[in-house]
Amino acid sequence: MTPVQMLVALATAPRRAFESLAQKPNWLFPFLLVLVATLAVTVWYYLKVDLVWITDMQLRANPRTAALTEAQRELLLARVKQYSSVTVWSAVIAVPIMLLAVRALEALWYSLAGKITNVDRGFRQWFALANWTSVFGVIAVIPALIALAMTSGNQIEPGIIQPLSINELFLHRPMGAPGYQLWTNLNLLSFVGAALAIIGVKTWSARSWLFSAIFVLLPAAIILGIVAMFMLR
């Protein structure tokens, strides 16, 4: 299957797509697609946003920095203004590193869980599965780019680059409100990706839906549980 055929198959006949992926575990296309899309929206956001304004908002929203005096805050904001280009370049460097790290961790978990549960697949196959199941995340980039294009000012909340997050779609909590981080990072396409991963594991393991769901969701459930415990209190 070509990458485009693979994309279509994932949306329309995912079992067939995963059977093909088991034969040819190619991961570069989805990785690059997500990387380029994420980079595009991130860089555009940071080039457009008033970095001093967004930093001020973040400082006030964070309980650890909210108590800073005005003088300390001004000093920090002056630094941000001075090194604004560094912030953009930091984002450019951080995005691929973070993306690669997250996918590698997912694949590592799948490999480990596969070895324990006798689902005999290699790391490369799991890495390809992790990348292909998250490929639909690029869909969120399109409304983000449209929203950025429609925004005239430079005081743009970071939620704009997460248009399909639970917070953006339903809750609209301001930065610093309880649960803001959790509900901003949790988006509809995360559920799509999880569903695809469950189908993929079921296809590759030939086990039950329950097994596949636990296989895929266990680490996410643990992480989300811990995050929710800290952020919702």
């Binding site: 969120a140 409304p143 704009i160 248009p163 953006e168 779609l169």
Partner: peptide, 11 residues
């Protein structure tokens, strides 16, 4: 829908 809904919401 995933593209149009968030844009419409923001507008």
């Amino acid at each position: 829908a995933l593209i149009a809904v968030p844009v419409a919401l923001r507008v």
